[in-house]
């Protein structure tokens, strides 16, 4: 019975981890294509920010898949050494997920700010330095 459970969990872990790796790979390749496109077209440095934002979202999504596979792995009691590695990997992924979400929020704020600066408020055309 225990072997069966270990086998099922092993298959699930492989599937979920493959999903996470696929998401990260797709995000990286897509971002690379966009980076080259933006660089060749010469849209300037501001055009890179949305691409980085999307790459960050892809990475966060892939990380969440991989964290799910880590959680699944703890279901079958591994050896103590494997448990230590699992803890280290899970810690890295969790910390990274946290930092990535903060970075995404920060860059989204920057994009919104730049958009607001680029398009002045039509309701108050004579007060560019509006407060609040």
């Amino acid at each position: 019975m225990e072997e069966l459970l270990a086998e099922v969990v092993g298959v699930l872990v492989t599937v979920v981890e493959a999903c996470g790796a696929a998401v990260i790979l797709v995000g990286a390749v897509w971002a690379f294509a966009r980076f080259v496109w933006v660089g060749v077209r010469g849209h300037g440095s501001r055009a890179f920010v949305p691409v980085r934002l999307t790459l960050g979202r892809f990475l966060a999504l892939g990380l969440e898949f991989q964290l799910a596979s880590d959680v699944l792995r703890t279901a079958v009691a591994p050896s103590f050494r494997e448990l230590g590695q699992l803890a280290a990997v899970a810690a890295i992924r969790t910390a990274l997920n946290y930092f990535l979400s903060r970075e995404i929020a920060e860059e989204r704020r920057q994009v919104a700010e730049e958009a607001r600066e680029a398009t002045p408020d039509p309701a108050a055309p004579e007060s560019p330095g509006r407060t609040a």
């Binding site: 990260i24 990286a28 890179f48 790459l55």
Partner: peptide
């Protein structure tokens, strides 16, 4: 490409590190 296109090393470094991070995550898998 980012360095050549924008001539801003900080931005190019950010791009490089973003994608290197993706590679690191794949390696971790």
């Amino acid at each position: 490409v980012a360095l050549v296109a924008t001539r801003r090393p900080a931005l190019a470094l950010g791009v490089l590190l973003d994608l290197l991070l993706a590679a690191g995550l794949l390696r971790l898998a």
